[in-house]
Write a protein that binds this DNA or RNA. Structure first.
Lengths: 331, 331
DNA sequence: TTGTAAGCGTTATCAC
DNA sequence: GTGATAACGCTTACAA
């Protein structure tokens, strides 16, 4: 009743298991007739090679581990889809693991990968470099997506946050707005940090003399609302709000409008991510081609696994400015 | 440079590999002092057991394969999150595989699972029973989510589409609307089919004498728009549209309103899924607790794997009616 | 309590 | 060309 093994095929084809292996793997040194007998026997038994045994013998699992934080919505599905597409194209399988925090659980999840995968894709904008360094099997090839900048001896794929911020600020300034407020993402998040920096740099460049204003946030819609209230209550003089993600931008947008503000007449609002909702609300934002980043990460990792040239480049992927109604130029 | 193996630990602790295995796995018959020596050696070497070898020896991979169609948005991420949570709680790992169609690729993806996983979760509302039966390793325990009804000898977790349709139709009728049109999902999709049936049954029950009207659709926003145009152009007499999913409902809603119709005054609109957008548009819909279904599927599958009682029940999960503005009762 | 050795299902290195 | 057989890293009788 158990699945047929290579032995069963050998017995049925009246050859040794060595010949079965050779025939099935298409090695040259097998007589045509032998090969056919093996193929027939395998087909009759419905034989499928045991991937576990295979990988133990070959010391290659043809699997890559994917370690992710709690992602939501399109972002997660697109990312996984991009990786899955490329992985299966190259004959690899994906082992998925969500990591919620820096707990012992996280370290366990990483350990559980040992002996199952040939390499790791790690997306962990919220994990510290120290934790990663200590919990990652040192000999396991791994590629970081938007990982901590301190880890610079490993290959990475990173979103070019700075360029994206620059583009958006330039767009706002071109529309006649210079008093731009930034709502930041959570502390400790790499993307959030880079966006603040990018914002400051872009302001220095495009709106010299204007003091940058950064309001604290945590990527939640409520944080956006709170920011809107702060702006109104403290009478922060501004003609644009650029949030570190769409949900905050949306929360802010709604709160501003509910408070009677005219968007975009009086104040512009922009976000980051291009969630589906952004399109419906006409929110100007930045689109991340996350499926493409995922596919590229897998591609590079597998290239490394299959002995390509040493690759520890920090590859940056451009985001795309998506201009909609909430930042329409005034007049 | 390679990762430490059990032999290295044994050598360093001056014991046999058998003792290392026993100590590490917490078996009773190990002297306290030996156990400590082993633990120390393992820690010093940063030893992590090789999951592949372990599973070959144990004939258990502590992994489950998850086979999914192209899912989008929250649905996918919530589903995977629910499964991941439960799986990691029970010490299992998830192997993910997207299946796009009935091609050879799909069969390969299924085969690639052999020898890597102990069981399979299959969500395939678009795959035929025949294809599944033939490509699935017959001895691999598997649980279907919203699978074809013909496969009734395997455990399944299914959304109770019929009950959901019934609840929504009852809600619409209670609001004074009986001429309810249904926009269907793609042919060949199990959920779509069940929703049509549920719709018909509910109409027969709550709006006897009224002829059910089913418009063809494919789950896309455009299909919803097309349905709206068909309703206007052909002057289909109706006071409610109930689409098989939110995207079609949204497309229909927008097209109706753009065409000058008063929703909900003149005509109500309802969807299915409760995508994030639905909340923003005030769309009445049906919420699927997909994370819960995923977790439950994993739970049952692992119970089976770990020798629980034979379980081939078809478990149905209730969806939740979410009433919003687009179906407000008239007057 | 501990060690030796067989076995899990493959691939690869040898002889023949 | 083909068949024994030793790995791969682990668990687990069975002996000691």
């Amino acid at each position: 009743m158990a699945e047929a093994t290579i032995r069963d095929v050998a017995r049925r084809a009246q050859v040794s298991i060595a010949s079965v292996s050779r025939a099935l793997n298409g090695l040259g040194n097998v007589r045509q007739e032998t090969r056919e007998r093996v193929m027939a026997a395998a087909a009759e038994l419905g034989y499928v090679p045991h991937a576990g045994a295979r990988s133990l013998s070959l010391a290659r699992a043809h699997a890559v581990g994917v370690v992710l934080p709690d992602l939501h919505g399109e972002f997660f599905s697109e990312f996984v889809r991009g990786m899955d597409r490329e992985a299966s194209r190259r004959g690899y399988v994906l082992l998925l693991s969500n990591i919620h925090d820096e707990s012992e659980q996280a370290a366990n999840a990483l350990r559980a990968m040992r002996g199952r995968v040939d390499g790791l894709i790690v997306m962990a904008p919220h994990l510290s470099a120290g934790m990663l360094q200590s919990a990652l099997p040192p000999t396991l090839p791994s590629l970081f997506i938007n990982g901590p900048e301190e880890i610079d001896d490993r290959p990475t794929v990173r979103l070019d946050n700075v360029a994206a911020m620059e583009a958006m600020v330039a767009h706002l300034v071109a529309g006649g707005r210079k008093r731009i407020v930034h709502i930041a993402g959570p502390e400790g998040n790499v993307d959030a940090r880079e966006r603040v920096e990018g914002y400051r740099a872009a302001m220095a460049r495009h709106a010299p003399g204007i003091e940058p204003v950064v309001l604290a946030g945590d990527f939640s819609e409520e944080a956006g609302e709170a920011a809107a209230h702060a702006i109104r209550a403290n009478a922060i003089a501004c003609d644009a709000v650029f949030a570190a993600n769409d949900m905050m931008a949306i929360g802010c947008l709604q709160a501003l409008r509910n408070g009677g503000a005219d968007v975009p007449g009086e104040i512009a609002v922009a976000g980051f991510d291009d969630v589906p909702l952004a399109r419906y609300l006409g929110l100007t934002t930045v689109r991340v081609r996350i499926a493409e980043m995922g596919a590229r990460a897998i591609e590079r990792l597998i290239d490394i696994l299959e002995g390509g040239p040493a690759d520890q480049r920090a590859e940056r992927h451009d985001a795309e400015l998506v201009v909609r109604g909430t930042t329409a130029a005034r007049d």
